[in-house]
Amino acid sequence: MDNSLSIFSLILSAGFVAQVVMFILVLMSIYSWTLILSKKKILIDANKDIKLFHQKFSADVDLEKLAHQTLQKATNQSPIERIFSAGYQEFIHTTSDSNQRLIIDAERAYRVMNTTANNEVDRLDGGLSILAMIASSSPYIGLFGTVWGIMHSFIGLASVKQATIAIVAPGIAEALIATAFGLFAAIPATIAYNRLISQVGVINNKYTTFIEQLFVMFQRQK
């Protein structure tokens, strides 16, 4: 086999369709890594915000004072602070000494907090569907490039009287590179998607636990 054959030279000598496929897969890989890194940072920040808020919440259970501190941040609130603020503002929306009224207010605040939490989880989930699409489609796009390349190689062999390994190998190697590109894009995307979706689920559970805890505290208010 020719010693000049290398991955780079095979890419340059590949057919137009195979090169287009490889270019698309490179773009998909770059986009998936950008999405992975940005989403990872968002999830790390969300976990950090939950930890800091729980520390303040555990240190001082004065809901009015905590709500005042949270509302002062205005648009700079963390997701869990937005959940707390939405629930507390809804809870104090009406004032009544009636126990029945208190239960109604607490239940209304509970629904508002769940709605806010669902919106925050949807924000954390944003983009993961694209990552899943890259993970599932990349191998097939790469396989298309490989099939096209092999088909093109065999068509070229029709004009050769005697086919040898030296003639067949370069064409097949060029075609198989497209599959390698597809796997290169798909494997990190698959691993990252499963990991990130699991982390979003953990954060969602933390939101749910906090909402349940706050709901009980609302019901106990006199």
Results as ranks from 00 to 15, higher is better:
residue 27 L to G: 08
residue 147 V to T: 01
residue 27 L to N: 06
residue 135 A to R: 07
residue 161 K to L: 13
residue 97 D to G: 06
residue 192 A to P: 01
residue 108 R to T: 02
residue 120 E to D: 11
residue 16 F to I: 13
residue 65 K to V: 06
residue 40 K to D: 07
residue 18 A to W: 01
residue 107 E to Y: 09
residue 39 K to G: 00
residue 92 I to R: 03
residue 120 E to P: 03
residue 15 G to P: 04
residue 106 A to Q: 08
residue 167 I to H: 01
residue 159 S to N: 10
residue 34 T to L: 14
residue 197 I to P: 09
residue 51 K to H: 13
residue 183 L to G: 02
residue 128 L to F: 04
residue 113 M to Q: 05
residue 183 L to N: 08
residue 159 S to F: 04
residue 14 A to W: 05
residue 112 V to S: 02
residue 59 A to S: 15
residue 29 S to E: 07
residue 1 M to H: 11
residue 128 L to R: 05
residue 83 I to M: 10
residue 178 A to Y: 01
residue 57 F to E: 09
residue 183 L to E: 03
residue 14 A to G: 01
residue 49 D to R: 13
residue 42 I to K: 15
residue 33 W to I: 15
residue 106 A to R: 02
residue 38 S to R: 10
residue 59 A to K: 13
residue 66 L to G: 03
residue 95 T to L: 10
residue 40 K to R: 15
residue 141 I to N: 06
residue 71 L to M: 13
residue 49 D to F: 11
residue 158 A to H: 07
residue 114 N to H: 10
residue 71 L to A: 09
residue 49 D to G: 11
residue 110 Y to Q: 12
residue 114 N to Q: 09
residue 69 Q to Y: 12
residue 149 G to L: 01
residue 213 Q to C: 04
residue 162 Q to S: 09
residue 42 I to M: 13
residue 158 A to Q: 15
residue 118 N to A: 13
residue 140 Y to N: 10
residue 213 Q to H: 15
residue 17 V to D: 06
residue 193 Y to G: 05
residue 92 I to C: 05
residue 92 I to A: 04
residue 110 Y to S: 10
residue 153 S to R: 00
residue 129 S to C: 08
residue 18 A to E: 11
residue 197 I to V: 09
residue 44 I to S: 11
residue 59 A to E: 15
residue 54 H to A: 12
residue 121 V to A: 03
residue 33 W to H: 14
residue 171 G to W: 04
residue 95 T to W: 10
residue 74 A to F: 07
residue 188 P to A: 11
residue 143 L to M: 02
residue 127 G to Q: 02
residue 95 T to K: 14
residue 81 E to V: 08
residue 35 L to S: 09
residue 83 I to A: 10
residue 102 L to A: 03
residue 30 I to R: 08
residue 34 T to H: 14
residue 60 D to P: 00
residue 113 M to Y: 02
residue 104 I to F: 12
residue 141 I to G: 06
residue 142 G to P: 07
residue 23 F to I: 11
residue 102 L to R: 15
residue 67 A to H: 05
residue 222 K to T: 07
residue 197 I to K: 05
